[in-house]
């Protein structure tokens, strides 16, 4: 089963994105924490793209495709146009530095990397594709 959602680049829409992911995951028997973590990782990547690649311009869009494979793997594919941010090359700061410096930012991609099993980024002709894959038993 595959799904698609076209997301306007407004942080106010994150709530709708989470509701959409919740509905996609609804038929599957996974733990509350896994469910929340998957929603969280998608939320983090959306917020990042909206802020850093689209300056929260709600006339711009991110296309989100969701692929579920063999009931054992779920992939979230974010496609957008513009200057991409290569999340897979991103060297995250350490949690110690974030704490010591009292930083507000930098935690999002740490979360995504902890939650997802694979993060892949590619760009072609100004079109960026970011794929997050989570291996999980989707009964």
């Amino acid at each position: 089963m595959n799904h698609q959602y076209k997301i306007p680049c407004s942080l106010k829409k994150l709530e709708d994105v989470r509701a959409f992911i919740r509905s996609v995951l609804a038929p599957y028997n996974i733990t509350k924490i896994d469910r929340n973590n998957i929603i969280l990782a998608v939320d983090e990547v959306c917020a990042n793209l909206m802020i850093h690649s689209h300056q929260c311009n709600e006339n711009e869009f991110i296309e989100l495709n969701i692929y579920i494979k063999n009931r054992s793997e779920i992939t979230f594919e974010f496609v957008d146009i513009g200057v991409g941010f290569n999340i897979s090359n991103y060297q995250e700061p350490s949690i110690k530095d974030i704490v010591n410096e009292g930083k507000k930012g930098g935690l999002g991609l740490i979360l995504v990397k902890k939650i997802m099993d694979d993060i892949n980024f590619s760009t072609k002709n100004n079109q960026n594709t970011c794929r997050l894959t989570k291996k999980i038993n989707l009964k």
Binding site: G102, K104, G105, L107, L111
Partner: peptide, 12 residues
Amino acid sequence: YISSAGLGVFNA
């Protein structure tokens, strides 16, 4: 629900 933005505020 809380995302990294909320964690960041508490941290700061």
